[in-house]
């Protein structure tokens, strides 16, 4: 207490000075409109700045929450984008005509899954039973054959790629119409092998291999590949032909599903004869 009094005594001059100046200053800013507005503005801008700083710091604590909200909003927006919708529109139309009856139906599709590096490669396409896809329909592109539908669900189908050792395709030489079977050997995705061609036929490198139309899966004449090499030494009666595939299997995106309207009819006839 005594120290306090001594302190007050030592600094009484300064304390009185401060008190009087404070009084004068209050008078100044309270009774002079110009100084008042200036002071209010300055005070406001200072408090505003400080409040802004505090708000900035406070915002950090809400970042997680805000992030969450943004993610929700993003998901909502993405859901409303056209790219999140699956188009069910197909372009195939049926003809009802007695002279020209529809035989092959082509349905456009997107390939949503594809592999080339396995022994049993498969494709998944975004068309299913809803769109008229049936099991054992063929899948082709404008360049050539790429697979055969295996299982069909409502909206999607899975298919065996041509690069699948379970798949055999009835194929022929475009030039001479001699037919054989085409299989993948499980190695390079660029080549398939064709068997059962007789050795006496006239064959050259660069000849086109196409579908034969005997299998009721593909229509006749859809290209598959070109002859890269052929080998007679293996078997005296039959050739082994190395076929370079026309389609680039690593870059599939669009394709057509080929549906044979008379497949059941043909198959039942086949079964009858066996």
């Amino acid at each position: 207490m005594r120290t306090l009094i001594r302190l007050l005594q030592a600094y009484h001059m300064f304390i009185i000075f401060l008190a009087l100046e404070t009084f004068a200053f209050l008078m100044l800013i309270n009774h002079n409109p110009y100084q008042k507005s200036k002071f209010t503005n300055a005070a406001l801008s200072i408090t505003g700045e400080i409040l802004q700083k505090i708000e900035k710091v406070k915002n950090y604590f809400y970042l997680a929450k805000i992030n969450q909200r943004l993610v929700h909003e993003n998901a909502q927006l993405k859901n409303s984008l056209i790219s999140s919708l699956k188009s069910n529109r197909i372009t195939a139309k049926d003809l009802s005509d007695l002279v020209f009856e529809k035989h092959w139906t082509f349905i456009d599709c997107n390939i949503v899954f594809n592999s080339t590096n396995k022994q049993q490669n498969i494709l998944i396409i975004d068309r299913g039973a809803k769109h008229g896809v049936v099991s054992e329909a063929g899948i082709v592109t404008e360049k050539g054959v790429i697979g055969i539908v295996r299982n069909v669900s409502a909206n999607y189908s899975n298919a065996l790629s041509l690069l699948n050792s379970q798949v055999t395709i009835s194929a022929r030489l475009r030039k001479s119409k001699h037919f054989g079977i085409l299989k993948w050997d499980g190695r390079s995705p660029k080549y398939c092998y064709m068997f059962d061609l007789p050795t006496h036929i006239n064959i050259e490198n660069g000849d086109t291999i196409e579908t034969s139309g005997y299998s009721s899966i593909f229509p006749a004449g859809i290209p598959i590949g070109i002859v890269e090499d052929f080998d007679k030494s293996n078997d005296p009666n039959f050739l082994k032909v190395k076929v370079k595939l026309l389609e680039e299997f690593g870059a599939l995106s669009h394709a057509y599903i080929v549906i044979n309207k008379f497949k059941n009819e043909i198959d039942s006839l086949k079964n009858l004869s066996q």
Partner: peptide, 9 residues
């Protein structure tokens, strides 16, 4: 009000 008071003090 206040101006001269402040300066004078």
């Amino acid at each position: 009000p206040g101006m001269h008071t402040f300066a004078s003090v």
